[in-house]
C-alpha cells in the first residue's frame, strides 16, 4: 500500500462528544469554508503555520505524517479501550481524500470510524469516503447560496447535493449537526427551508443543534486574524416548538459540544 502523507493539526485522545464511546478525534488541516463563527481558524489553511501567543512561546501548528503512522498510532491507543472509536474532523477531513482513505483502510477491523464533514467536496470523493466509515456527522450550515456565501464563503448547492447522495446512495448512518446562531440559523426562513430539505431525507437519524461557542474567537489573534462573526454569539437561541421534522431534534448544552 503506497503510504500517502497528510497534514493534521491536533489529536484529542478522549473527546467525549464527537461520537459514541470514548473518541479519539483527529483534526485534519485545511477547510474550503470560512464560517464566520469558526472556532478552529488554525484548521482552515492546509499549510503548516506558526501560531503566536502574547505570553507563551510560538507554536508550530500542523504536522505532516504518513497514513501508516497515523493509523498505527490510532490502532495502538484504541486497542485497549472497549467501545472506543476514531473521529476525523478538521478543518474539513475530506479535503485530504487519499490520505483519509488510506488511514481508514489501515484501521483495525471493527474500529468505529466517523467523519465530521461540512459536505463541500466533490461528490465522488464524498461518496467514496462516506461509504468507508461507520457514521457521518454532517455539519450543515446555510441552505441558500446568498446566505451561504455571506456566512461561510461558499454556495450551498454542492453541500445539499452531497447530503441527498449520502441519504440515497449509501447506507452509512448519519446525523445532521447544525450551529444554531442568532439571526443566522434561528430564523423562521431558515427553519422552513430546513423542514423542506429534511422531508426529502429518508435515513437521517437526528439533528443536533449546536449552541454558539462562547470562546470561538479565542484562537484568532494567534493566527493573526480578526474574529468578526457579525451576530451575537452570546445569545441563547431556542428551537421552535413546532418544527416539522420527523427525526428527533435536540439542542445540545454548551458542555455537551
Amino acid at each position: 500500500m503506497a503510504d500517502v502523507s497528510g497534514t493534521i493539526f491536533d489529536i484529542a485522545e478522549c473527546s467525549l462528544h464527537d461520537g459514541p464511546g470514548v473518541r479519539m478525534t483527529v483534526f485534519l488541516k485545511g477547510c474550503p469554508l470560512r464560517c464566520r463563527w469558526c472556532h478552529s481558524p488554525e484548521g482552515q489553511t492546509n499549510a503548516v503555520e506558526t501560531l503566536h501567543f502574547p505570553d507563551l512561546p510560538d507554536r508550530v501548528c500542523g504536522k505532516i505524517l504518513s497514513a501508516g503512522e497515523l493509523a498505527e498510532h490510532i490502532n495502538s491507543l484504541l486497542a485497549f479501550v472497549p467501545g472506543s472509536g476514531v473521529t476525523f474532523s478538521g478543518g474539513e477531513p475530506m479535503m485530504q481524500p487519499e490520505f483519509l482513505s488510506s488511514v481508514l483502510d489501515r484501521l483495525e477491523p471493527g474500529t468505529h470510524s466517523l467523519i465530521d464533514t461540512c459536505g463541500f467536496v466533490p461528490a465522488d470523493v464524498f461518496l467514496m469516503l462516506a461509504k468507508k466509515v461507520s457514521c457521518i456527522f454532517f455539519g450543515l450550515k446555510l441552505l441558500d447560496d446568498e446566505n451561504s456565501v455571506r456566512w461561510s464563503g461558499q454556495p450551498s448547492g454542492r453541500v445539499i447535493e452531497n447530503l441527498l447522495l449520502l441519504d440515497s446512495e449509501t447506507t452509512t448512518p448519519y446525523r445532521l449537526r447544525i450551529p444554531l446562531l442568532h439571526t443566522v440559523t434561528d430564523t423562521p426562513d431558515y427553519f422552513s427551508k430546513l423542514e423542506k430539505l429534511c422531508s426529502r431525507l429518508k435515513r437521517m437519524e437526528c439533528i443536533d443543534f449546536l449552541p454558539s461557542n462562547l470562546d470561538a474567537g479565542a484562537k484568532y489573534p494567534s493566527c493573526s486574524r480578526i474574529f468578526a462573526p457579525g451576530f451575537d454569539t452570546a445569545y441563547d437561541c431556542v428551537l421552535p416548538e413546532n418544527l416539522k421534522i420527523k427525526a428527533p431534534c435536540r439542542l445540545l448544552r454548551r458542555n455537551e459540544v
Binding site: 467525549l16 464511546g21 470514548v22 486497542a79 479501550v81 472497549p82 458542555n255
Partner: peptide, 24 residues
C-alpha cells in the same frame, strides 16, 4: 469537571477505566 458533567460523560469514563484494566 466537564468530563463528568453528564451521565453520558460518566458512562464514557467507565470505558476509560476498562481501558486502564486492559492496558495492563
Amino acid at each position: 469537571p466537564v468530563c463528568f458533567a453528564s451521565e453520558l460523560a460518566v458512562a464514557k469514563m467507565t470505558s476509560l477505566i476498562r481501558g486502564f484494566v486492559n492496558s495492563g
